[in-house]
Design a protein around this nucleic acid. Structure first.
Lengths: 153, 153
DNA sequence: TTAGCTGCAAAAGGTTTGCAAATTA
DNA sequence: TAATTTGCAAACCTTTTGCAGCTAA
């Protein structure tokens, strides 16, 4: 329905940071760039650290964690949990939810629209407003599902 | 539709343990009892440890963690993540999902049937079989939702 | 007797914190 | 200059692990 939104740029994110009274440092810029470079992936904080260190070797983990936290406060970035293990970060640009296979750990992105029926129902029945995803749904992907017979007609 | 299933008993769980070649120790019995005593709550491993230690003061955390893991392998217990922080354990008796308010951390239990529409859709569209919940859905409960006006007609 | 538990202590993994020094605006 | 960031190191929290001794069956 809606065309893909124009991707957010490094400068736009840095502007948001500036606007909030923040300062733009080399490390912060590199962190944002690392995030944009993986627009379509789910990166852990540790992976961001590595990406930043590939360019500036003396960056501390804590700095990256702090920058990610700040970006999250600004609403530019979100983190979510795909599974046990480290959280993954991504731009908060297009809402979507994740399915994670508990066997092969494959990650499937699914459009937010799919969930509106459910979230509407939860809203009506419980007055609960489901927000953007913080946790993935776990289960088995096609490949890992025990090969049961085809669904009958 | 279906009446509440008869609650599982301590002895039934211990039998399952025995059947799997396990041994019944005082600590294991106390762990199971602690779990049953909180049938309607979501207890962290730490809370189970405390409950067990209240009766037998020298129980090691690791023992309780190991017992919980064993019970999980037997399918008697599950753990799930309501939020950041420790996992919560409960009996794997009746399938349900949890909503957690990110503001007040209230936990709402919701019946599994509510999700069949969605899970069916995910099955059809992605060949993905959503399994019993491992993660909660996060959002805002009625009390914490910014008091917006009533939904217009 | 012997496979299976246990406590202890230590480590692991991911993230946060305190602080003085460095840097940005 | 004043406020914000930074690196470092240490702490944190939850969970796991190794191991020698203990115990249920």
């Amino acid at each position: 329905m809606s065309p893909a939104p124009p991707p957010i740029t490094v400068e736009e994110i840095l502007d948001a940071l500036r606007l909030a009274g923040g300062r733009i440092t080399t490390t912060r810029r590199a962190t944002v760039e690392a995030l944009l470079a993986h627009t379509d992936r789910h990166v852990s904080a540790e992976e961001v650290v590595e990406a930043v260190r590939a360019r500036y070797s003396d960056v501390a983990e804590s700095t990256v964690y702090r920058t990610l936290a700040t970006l999250e406060e600004l609403g530019v970035v979100t983190h979510l949990h795909l599974d046990h293990g480290p959280a993954t970060f991504h731009l908060a640009d297009h809402p979507h939810r994740h399915l994670v296979c508990r066997a092969c750990h494959a990650v499937i992105e699914t459009p937010a629209e799919l969930y509106t029926g459910l979230t509407g129902e939860l809203e009506r029945r419980f007055g609960f407003t489901v927000e953007d995803e913080h946790f993935a749904l776990t289960g088995l992907c096609r490949a890992c599902r025990p090969a049961a017979g085809a669904t009958p007609p």
